[in-house]
Each structure stands twice: as C-alpha cells, then as structure tokens.
Design a protein around this nucleic acid. Sequence first.
DNA 1: TAGCTTTGTGTCAATTTTACACTTTCCAAA
DNA 2: TTTGGAAAGTGTAAAATTGACACAAAGCTA
Lengths: 251, 251
Amino acid sequence: MQHNQKKINSELNPNVSVDCVIFGFDLEQLTVLLIDRGEISSGFGPRLALPGNLIYDNENLDMAANRVLDELSGLHDIYLEQVGAFGDPDRIHKESDREWLKSIRAEPEARVITVAYFSLVPMQQYKPQASSFAKNADWVPVNEIKELAFDHLEILHAAKEKLKQKIKIQPIGFNLLPRKFTLSQLHRLYESILDKPLDKRNFRRKIQKLDILSSLREKQRGVPHKPSLLYEFNEEKYQELTRTGFDNFGF
Amino acid sequence: MQHNQKKINSELNPNVSVDCVIFGFDLEQLTVLLIDRGEISSGFGPRLALPGNLIYDNENLDMAANRVLDELSGLHDIYLEQVGAFGDPDRIHKESDREWLKSIRAEPEARVITVAYFSLVPMQQYKPQASSFAKNADWVPVNEIKELAFDHLEILHAAKEKLKQKIKIQPIGFNLLPRKFTLSQLHRLYESILDKPLDKRNFRRKIQKLDILSSLREKQRGVPHKPSLLYEFNEEKYQELTRTGFDNFGF
DNA sequence: TAGCTTTGTGTCAATTTTACACTTTCCAAA
DNA sequence: TTTGGAAAGTGTAAAATTGACACAAAGCTA
C-alpha cells in the first residue's frame, strides 16, 4: 500500500526539473527569493540558487512549479508563468554544483532539462517554510545578484526580461504589491522592473487612464511627509480590460 | 569504435523531445510545415503532426531544434526561437498517437516533456528532405488547421501567439519573405500574422519610418497590373535599431 | 483601346507623448 | 510653536503619432 501509493504519487523523473524565479518587491526594489545551500565543502562557488526540484511523473509542469513554490513559501494562488526550458548538457560545470547534486539527487549525473517559471508574490504575505531542498531562503535585490548556481543567472535574466515585456502589456505588477498601495509605490515598482526612470506625472496619468485603480478614502499614516492616498487594484475593471484586449503597439 | 561513436554522439533521452512550428508564407497566408504520418491502422485520428523528435543527451535544446529543422528541410541559419515546454502527463491520449509512438520509439510509454520552437523560413528556399520521422511534409495554411496529433494544436496556437507578440516588437517578419519583396507582400504578411486588416497607407507609412527597407530600382515583371517596386531588407539598419532598442509601449 | 487590377500617394482631426516646476501636507527637530 | 525636510500631488503646451479616407497611375489582357 505504502509502496503502491508511492508509485502512483511520486515517481521522480530524473531528467526534468522546474526552477522558480520568485519575484518580490520590498517597496524599494525588485527582489528574488533565493535559497542558500550553505557551506560547500569543496571550497568556493556560489551558495545561492533558485528554488527548484525534479518533477514527478504524474504532475504537469505548472503543478510542479506550484508545488515548489508552495513548499518554500506556503503560498497558493500565486501568479506563475513559464519562462522556458533550459538545458545545456554542460550546465553543471561548477564543482560545487556537482557536489551539491550528489547530496540531494538519486542520479546526480543525469542530464537534466529544467523548465523555468517566474512568479510574483506580495512579499508582505510571504512566510518562509522549511522545505526539502532549502535550508534557508532569502530575498535578494535583483541588481545585486552577480552569480548563482548552475545556469540560474541566465534563467534569472530571462525571467526578468519576460517580466519586463509582460508588464508593458498586462498590469501584472499589482501581484507584487500589498492590497493597499500608493501610486508612488507602483511608480517605483515599474521603474525597478523596467530599469529606467519614468516621469512621475506622465506615469500617473497613464496608469489612471487604464482605469483599474480604486482610490480609497484613506491616507498613509506616520510618514514624515505629505501622506499619500491609498489605492486598491480593481479586479473587475482589469478582467474587462483583458477581455477587450490591451496590447499597445501601433498595428 | 562504431559503438563508442554511437555512445558519444547519440544517446537519446527518452524523456525530452523538441517540436518545431515551422512557419512559412506563400505570399497569401501564413502556413505551417506539417508531417503526414500516413494511414493509422487503428482507424481515425489526426494524420498531421508537428515535426519533432527526442533529443540526444549531448546536444542542447537549440541544437536539437536545429537538427529537426535541418533533417526536414535541409535549411541552416534559420530564425528559431523557443516557445516553451509542454508536458501534461496525459498529453498522449489519442489511440492513434499511442500507436504511432510504438512504431517509432524505443520507450513509447515514457513520460515526455517537449520543448516547442518556432522558426521562420523563406518558403521559396525550402526543399523537402527525406527524414527519419516524416514520410511526407506539407505546407498547410494555419487557419485551416483544426486538429493535430498529441497536444500539437495547443503548441501551434502558443507559437502563433508568440509570433504575434514578437512581430510587434521586432521586424522578424522578413525571415518569411524572399530577398526581394513588395510592400504589399509585407503588408499581407503582417495582416495574416496579426489576423486583422491593416490600413494600407498607414501600414506603409509606419514601415517606411522604421527605415529598415532599401528600395531597389527594380519593378515586378509580368503582373497584370501596375507593377510594384521591389524592396530589400536592410540588415545594418536593423542591427542598429535592435541595439538602440525598439519596443513600443508607452512607458 | 477599353477595361481590369493592383500600386502608390497626402491630409486633416484626434489622440498621445514628452518635458517640465511649484504648492501642499505631514513629521520632527529646534 | 515655528521651521525645515521630504515626498505627494497637480496642468499645460508643443511635438509626434494615429486613424480615417479616395483617386490617379501603370501594366496587362481581351
């Protein structure tokens, strides 16, 4: 029974994994949730890696990504989108990576294709969980990340690029903010994703014209400057907007 | 030696395949190159499928996709871009698909993740090749495709969608045209990719402003109407343009 | 040479984008 | 209580872009 259960629910596929680029926003800059693999005995090499794991043969890719996310953060119903597949045969070339795999995989030498996802989580709701593959997890500002395990740096860049494109077409940025937020926070969010300054007035005008924000009759409290009005994201308007479509190229 | 060679060059990974959505343009509409699997003994089910194959353990994904493309068309240096990974555990649910796999795979029951690519080929240069996996290959207009093997219809839609997005941001459409082409052909190409009519004059204005076309001092010959000027794609201008960036959303 | 077919062209109104600076409001420190 | 610091919030004018729209020119064919 136990055996049978195991067979049905949990046959790991040694050749396919998922990795998650979990984006957060600390109201200052875009950050990513990385796992710390701890000290590597053989010496140096990056300690940080994207959370990820092999997939089970009975789950589809989206499920696997959600599972990894859940194991790490306990979060459900999170914005999740596939970035693509990565799989150079020589993607495991660092000694430290090889070593680590030996400690966590049944077939550490297997050729693995990984399917990358990115997800957007409201950092405020995030509560770290003990997970099978991560001793520790930390939020790290994207711009400060210079090296990662395996080809994870490449994956991170691809995910960031995809996010960049996507945010120009759909207002998914709201997934990174608390329920109530200020226009300045939203502004800062766009700047940190697009990596360039945006004119304050023009930004506000454009966002407001989308008509997906509800202004609350509520102000920030306790800030040492003029308090900002708080806004809420308006789901209905957004749904309508995505139905009627809103690209923005000229054709 | 033979054995060794085989071992080094050609260990198939039973769990990962690539599939290619090969787009062409017959100067009227967008088409896709599909392989005809021939009569399926067990009766009905789609005969047509995307070209694809398992990957070798020593090649990366892009190489695998290029290989499939080459085997089928003999073409090299073709525009190729990843669409993403697809891999529902139950993606093989049609009896005809199961049957076909038995005839071509060593492990027909294995759980397979497929990585989809789309490529853009100038149909004029295409010369069909005998290939290991295709008895026949045919160009089929995208709009006429109602069913395909496995989850290939889903893949096709995703590829088309990606192409749609991409063509709004980069002028990759030229990869589908002969070296010399008319503005009307380009116009028609955009319409068939974007699935909507575009105003002739506005289209021409916009394209010309991109400044990536060289007008040739040459006209169409033998057409029963006013002959069109021929244009060439200007690689240098394009390179420059991609360097300086050319997105087109407002931010 | 008359007729068919597609090419190629310009303008105007409406909308969108860009650049730009000062007042308001709250807190904290003097 | 007054003052200074800090970010919020707001409008306009010029430039660029978009969208709608119609007719003459050029080549072929019958």
